[in-house]
């Protein structure tokens, strides 16, 4: 895995929106040797060591992770024709977004990425990892994102998903274990966040997102995502995204300063 250095951040600027959020490049602890991690004889983190487990026997998903590239731009990139069927309004919106370099992207206005887009900050040009902090009854997902740092709380205490929630950007998340897979279900979205970036697949308040996190070994995880959003898509659609551990590093702080940057992001937009 690449060092998280200046060159990554420079490449990141290829997308105009993201330039405003270039994080500090000399943040500390980006090359910190994390204790208690399995290592090969040469001192590198052993990415194929077995999945660690918590004292209660569950897989421990804790760590700093980054998705494989491309899904942030187009979450549906691996799908075959017919696997993603949009309602006409959604199809028109995606076509519009593709034709205008996603200028209506909420992230342009420093707003949160939404779910599951927020998990997809991985590629050579877009390195925005997330971090899992796991306790038995609550899993916290910390995000760097290319706008503001953000977190999600996933409750594992048995509470039900809300039936009539106050809508939010990140929704409300509950989780449970199915074997060695953490199943996270999220609903209660405000309908304004996008599912991905270049194509800007929309999300409505009716959306329900299921993310199934499986840590295959020490260095590798998969998120199997199902998006069920009958007000935007004809049927639920599913993508599987490989996620890689980023060893011996951590998240970088990012914050987006709207007042300072908004006028520069899109020349057609009035400041």
């Amino acid at each position: 895995m690449q060092n998280r250095t200046l060159s990554n951040q420079v490449r990141l600027c290829a997308i105009a929106v993201l330039c405003l959020a270039v994080p500090a490049v000399h943040a500390q602890w980006l090359n910190y040797r994390i204790p208690g991690v399995p290592r090969t004889p040469d001192g590198k983190v052993n990415l194929t060591a077995p999945t660690p487990r918590t004292p209660d026997g569950k897989p421990d998903l804790s760590g700093t992770w980054e998705s494989e590239g491309g899904y942030f731009g187009n979450l549906a990139r691996d799908l075959k024709p017919g696997e993603l069927l949009m309602l006409p309004w959604a199809e028109a919106q995606v076509k519009d977004n593709l034709g205008n370099q996603h200028k209506n992207d909420p992230m342009v206005a420093c707003l949160p990425p939404g779910v599951p887009r927020i998990n997809m900050g991985g590629s050579r040009s877009m390195p925005h990892p997330f971090k899992v902090v796991q306790t038995p009854s609550l899993v916290i997902l910390l995000y760097e994102t290319s706008t503001n740092q953000t977190f999600r709380q996933v409750f594992l205490d048995g509470r039900p998903l809300p039936t009539d929630p106050q809508p939010t950007w990140l929704g409300y998340s509950v989780g449970h274990w199915e074997g060695d897979t953490l199943v996270v279900e999220t609903a209660g979205f405000n309908g304004r966040a996008w599912v991905d970036t270049a194509s800007g697949h929309p999300q409505t308040e009716a959306a329900r997102v299921t993310e199934r996190f499986t840590r295959r070994d020490f260095g590798h995880m998969e998120i199997d995502i199902t998006i069920d959003d009958p007000k935007a898509y004809l049927k639920p659609w599913r993508v599987r995204v490989p996620i890689n551990l980023l060893p011996d590093t951590d998240l970088i702080e990012t914050f987006c300063e709207n007042e300072r940057d908004l006028g520069r992001m899109d020349r057609t937009r009035k400041p």
């Binding site: 500090a24 602890w29 994390i34 910390l142 740092q149 953000t150 977190f151 709380q153 702080e253």
Partner: peptide
């Protein structure tokens, strides 16, 4: 972790690492 309603967070490391003498300044 300390989580705030405005979605900011702090990470407090207890794994023995030391504060660096000249870190890049950040908001948090």
């Amino acid at each position: 972790l300390i989580l705030n309603p405005d979605l900011t967070y702090r990470q407090i490391f207890l794994d023995g690492r030391a504060l660096e003498p000249a870190p890049n300044p950040t908001w948090m």
